[in-house]
Design a binder for these strands. Structure first.
Lengths: 333, 333
DNA sequence: CTGTTAGCGCGTTCAT
DNA sequence: ATGAACGCGCTAACAG
């Protein structure tokens, strides 16, 4: 009734009175003809023993597993990345692929690639910064069928998902410019936000230059006191920007709150745009104009692209749209 | 220079002029005595070829992989779960373990266990609801060394992390009671929040009963209009609760906003508590009293516990503290 | 047609 | 320091 240990195909074969080869044929539904009676006996034996084929043995034989490897980012994660992971895992599951989160400590470039190669994953999805050319080459040589890069600039040596976390800032800025605003300001939080904040600030400056708009930089943190000096300055109309890009929705809501406390009205005195489409932004008044990525769409497009790469096809065309940030115009700008 | 295909230990052996056995000894640092000269030749050969041992072959031989399998929840995830995943992955990485997110579609109980068993993971961390006794038994039989359950009630047949996502509601309610509030109200959002909201509501009712406090139930959604009737009713002091548990911080901030619009002051007229410790809660005035889990601590304790189970030890004692929700008292209650 | 034999894939480990 | 066998599933070739 109960096997002493993990049952193997040998156990199933013995119990069904057939050879291991027959067990394999039945369980994998190959085209090899097997009599219905035998089929049923094998199936019954497998069920009785709670047989589960050994994925390692299968992967060893096949030369590859059905694992999608995702080396985790070394430092703090990007906004929405956690949600992305959960979505990606679910999407891949529907395609018979498992998502392996590989939190590597040491690794970068080739160093990391060697570690990732050990798992002989079917596919690897990694950031452009670590997917250097030699790293990609090593993965390919190790038999990884699909190497998909994430981020810009995209290397020419591997397909990539050209997603740019600072693109939301560009779209937000364009919106502000289209509304006629020319005196802009940009919140640039430090600390855990510093890296992304710098990039978004640069994106704002770049977009503003096209219209010869100037951008005031406001370094800050997630505390009202950090933006108090700026807000105080802005009480004087002569020193006041037309609009502020607030880095993200949390900072935007904080800013709106601080402005109101200072007697300034949003959007009449100052327009404000955030990023991330946080639920609260749609609720508190003035409701928040924001830019964001459609994370579920993105996860779907990435999963689909990985599947297609494994099938020898090209990226999912839907990817192009999925990496575009969306603008949601509400009351604040 | 470049191998045609993924190099194996045979390739390394050939290049170094030794046997595969020697390669294995050198690369794994066994106690087997190897001359330094040979050691260096093997190491050099491995490096030159970019050799990465095949994890499948190793796992096959060893009978187990170094994978920690985490079957993903089918439906919408719990708050903070995404963050938990990212943390857990990083923690496990530091212990030489890989986190495999298995998004199973079909599976529950034994059905799922068979799928999970295929990977011969070193450990499985899964929700109590799916970690039924037969499922756990099957995993054990498949050679899984550590099966850790998550959630309450904890089965006696496997170690578990007794975390209860509704515990934050209990702690919040106790705080309100300790402040002398006896007429309570509880927001119960439907839709994607319904499942957890019901449990938190029950937790509030239970905690309130101890002090013979009554709890008004306010069904709602994440829109001001959904709580408008309740807020309107509360303008009459005779119908007004002393305090509200708002399900989470988003709902709490929305409620505070709606109350202010209605001319009610928080906390003077009504106290409000949320859950989740969202950054904005500490910023907007009145600042928000909240209850939450220390997710990073939890991830650390879980990872550490898994490691210990694999080493044949008991759970990390720190787990007990990590599953306790924390109360952060601010201005709103 | 139906089922079996044999050997591969790759790293580890015991006995020589 | 090495030959040989092992762990487990898959599949090409082969025998009734």
């Amino acid at each position: 009734m109960s096997a002493v240990s993990r049952p193997t195909s040998t156990d199933v074969a013995r119990r069904a009175g057939v050879s291991r080869a027959t067990v394999s044929h039945v369980l994998n539904g190959t085209d090899h003809p097997i009599s219905e009676a035998t089929r049923q006996r094998v199936l019954a034996a497998a069920r009785d023993l709670h047989y589960a084929p050994n994925a390692s043995a299968r992967a060893l034989r096949a030369g590859r597993s059905n694992i999608v490897l995702l080396p985790m980012p070394r430092s703090g994660s990007l906004p929405g990345q956690d949600v992305f992971l959960a979505h990606l895992g679910r999407e891949l599951a529907g395609m018979g692929l498992d998502l392996l989160l590989h939190g590597d400590h040491t690794a970068s470039g080739v160093e990391g690639a060697r570690m990732w190669a050990e798992l002989r994953p079917a596919a690897v999805f990694l950031d452009t910064s670590r997917g250097t050319q030699p790293a990609v080459a090593l993965l390919r040589q190790a038999g990884v069928q699909a190497v998909l890069l994430s981020g810009v600039p995209a290397g020419p040596y591997a397909p990539s998902v050209p997603i740019d976390p600072s693109a939301v800032a560009r779209v937000a800025t364009r919106h502000l410019l289209s509304q006629g605003h020319r005196r802009l300001s940009c919140l640039v939080p430090g600390g855990e936000w510093a890296a992304l904040a710098e990039r978004r600030f640069e994106a704002v400056v770049e977009a503003a230059q096209i219209e010869n708009a100037l951008v005031e930089r406001v370094d800050c943190s997630l505390a009202v006191s950090s933006i108090a000096p700026a807000v105080a300055r802005w009480r004087n109309p002569a020193h006041r920007p037309d609009a502020v890009y607030a880095y993200n929705d949390e900072f935007a809501l904080m800013l709106i709150y601080a402005l109101r406390e200072a007697g300034l009205d949003v959007p009449r005195d100052i327009a404000v745009v955030g990023s991330g489409n946080q639920p609260l932004g749609a609720i508190l008044r003035p409701t928040l104009t924001t830019t964001h990525f459609l994370v579920p769409d993105l996860a779907h497009a990435v999963a689909s692209s990985l599947r297609r790469l494994l099938d020898g096809r090209e990226l999912d065309p839907a990817l192009a749209a999925a990496v575009q940030p969306r603008l949601i115009v509400r009351e604040s700008a």
